[in-house]
Design a protein around this nucleic acid. Structure first.
Lengths: 249, 249
DNA sequence: CAGTGGTCTAGACCACATT
DNA sequence: ATGTGGTCTAGACCACTGG
């Protein structure tokens, strides 16, 4: 047995949800707004709003101020874990993030480089003494002018300080090509993935609409003799990505 | 320049958020409730509620009816992609989901087995003609009685029908051990990961609190001659898992 | 300009938890 | 019994979008 009578706002939300699921309303279509719902169901405005807020927080509709509420469109980008980090790629002078995007306009943005003492979790991941100096590279990635991802790389200052890695432009092949030239070519990677709802700052930087989760991807790059040479913490727009990993039994 | 004056409810939410971030309020602590906020900030109840709803939808606090609002605790389980699917594991008679959990009480639940025509995306993933018959296994996984994951496996009926794979109990080593016995041992895997907010049905089945995203993991198992033998669609409680993948350059 | 969503107030009744 | 969060009404003013 279910709850004998679900609250009105949930029933309204459910009616709209199933209209969307059935295809009666599809991508980009206008959803009945507050005034429609008030009339149609004879409820107060706050109740109509509450119903819509359920769908907004589920990420299946978006509200546009002054215009209306619309079914959300969802066109993710496939990000292929192993293949994109193959040695041929950055060995060939392409930046690794060019792997996924074919001919689309991918760009980096808001690049900053600092040097600081390693935060605790960074020291642990890179197997450094606490307070050891690290080079910190931050940047934002855009696809067709839409922000997709924030990334922060940490590298031991002993390796990276004074090299192109600490410049805004790291040159052809990016950080990994430079590490290879310095005798620290990445050979193994480990990626950890977490999900969560974004902070307000992330909502702004990634231009996220309400109800969009983010993916935290924490990648550690190891040399062939298993020294950790980079930690890259990425925050991805959850509606923009499909992550793919291939491996053998 | 920011917005000249953020709405009151956002400012209240931000004050609470930073109290949590700074550790002033920590895991499980009680957060000021609606009545507190009304007095402290001199706002109407709806405004106090709106402030709290922001944090609830961000998944950083949970509301308990009749009691109060509390800082959420977060203790995820690490799910190791490649290692858990190594052949030794299911070859040795252990179910693969026992890999991650050491000595904790992991259990499967609500097991159903059906046979139907393959839905379109399943036919595509398994490289079958549309409408081909497939065996469909559904189940829910629990860790220490807490629901963690829903899973649905699809296997070609030509392989699986009439075998232990179509029984509720698939026997030692699970589906993969049975496939191996039938000459279809999985050798390669592909996992695709998506994130989204859960449906109401998933909220119920996984006992999710508000503001918790889910992970969709779609795994395809291939034999050494690259025939697809299983598609497993999993829906994980996003607050319960860290996914890990290791690979080489 | 009319219509939309965004914010806010001031009430009300209810179910539930704790004391 | 009191306090908590959950639902709901009936207003109000605002900022923005669109014709």
């Amino acid at each position: 047995m279910r709850d004998p009578s679900p609250p009105v706002y949930r029933e309204i939300a459910e009616a709209l949800r199933s209209a969307i699921a059935s295809g009666e309303l599809s991508d980009g279509d206008r959803v009945p707004g507050e005034n429609d719902l008030m009339k149609r169901y004879g409820v107060a405005r706050a109740t109509a709003r509450q119903a819509l807020s359920v769908l907004i927080n589920e990420g299946i509709v978006v509200a546009v101020r002054g215009s209306g509420v619309y079914v959300r469109t969802f066109r993710p980008l496939r990000r292929h874990g192993p293949r994109r980090l193959s040695r041929e790629l950055w060995g060939g002078g392409r930046a690794i993030w060019q792997a996924d995007t074919a001919d689309r306009a991918f760009a980096a943005d808001n690049i900053t480089v600092r040097e600081t003492a390693a935060p605790e979790h960074v020291a642990r991941a890179l197997d450094l003494p606490e307070q050891e100096r690290v080079v910190v590279r931050r940047r934002r990635y855009l696809l067709d002018d839409r922000p997709m991802q924030l990334a922060t790389s940490y590298l031991p200052a002993k390796l990276a300080a004074g090299t192109a890695i600490a410049e805004a432009d790291t040159g052809p092949g990016g950080i990994y090509a430079r590490l290879a030239e310095l005798g620290h070519a990445p050979a193994h990677f480990t990626e950890e993935i977490r999900v969560r709802m974004p902070s307000p700052a992330e909502v702004e930087e990634l231009a996220l609409s309400a109800g969009t989760p983010v993916l935290d991807v924490m990648r550690t790059a190891l040399t062939s003799d298993h020294r950790a040479v980079e930690l890259n913490e990425m925050t991805l727009d959850g509606s923009a990505y499909i992550l793919q990993y291939d491996f053998d039994a």
